[in-house]
Design a protein around this nucleic acid. Structure first.
Lengths: 98, 98
DNA sequence: TATAACTTTGACAAAGTTGTCCAAAAAGTT
DNA sequence: AACTTTTTGGACAACTTTGTCAAAGTTATA
């Protein structure tokens, strides 16, 4: 079964924390409607909001990034035939680089 | 040491094949100067050109995709703290999905 | 039901991207 | 050196993306 999307994930967290869109959006300094669209998958979130969002939603920053990447990579590179191989290679490069 | 960039890679292949920018660009149906910029890393290549490009340059389509991903993922997600973890997770998801 | 708070929708502006065109620069040839 | 071919640079138009605003729709509650 397919994993919960990024949007549904952050909506769920927001509801768990009993926060209205209004408050979360204000803390991120974006418009309520923008956040609403992100939650419903109508548009991607910008990468810079991930860190603050994880704090606002009191969630693991890593988990949030991982979920973001799942959506984003699939949207951007889903067409590629050799995506898995490419990702593995990228990981190898990144590990060497440290 | 850092790996050869995507641009340098396709330039090298083009030169090995003794093809001018003009010919490769024409086959891709893009402007010569666009391809020139891609080769010099002044702009990204659009994903749709990868397959035809691999044919024109007589190279392994997989290798080309992998090199493209290295550049592209680094450019788009390089900032993320947990990039490696995220990529691993994405790979797991993709493997399950098949 | 009336009211207030929350959420969604779509038109819009600003900024960023993608690719073209053409002139200038560089490299190769005779 | 003159000529031809290849490559580069930058201004431009078309398109896409990112986020805002305000009005309309929903939901919760008194």
């Amino acid at each position: 079964m397919a994993k919960e999307s990024f949007g549904k994930y952050i909506r769920r967290l927001r509801e768990v924390n009993n926060l209205p869109l209004r408050k979360v959006a204000a803390q991120l300094d974006i418009d309520t409607s923008t956040l609403s669209k992100v939650e419903r998958g109508k548009r991607p979130i910008s990468i810079d909001y991930l860190k603050p969002l994880s704090e606002i939603l009191k969630t693991d920053c890593k988990e949030l990034q991982v979920r973001f990447l799942e959506d984003s990579i699939n949207a951007n590179y889903g067409k590629l035939e050799y995506l898995i191989d490419g990702l593995n290679e990228v990981i190898n490069q990144l590990k060497e680089k440290k």
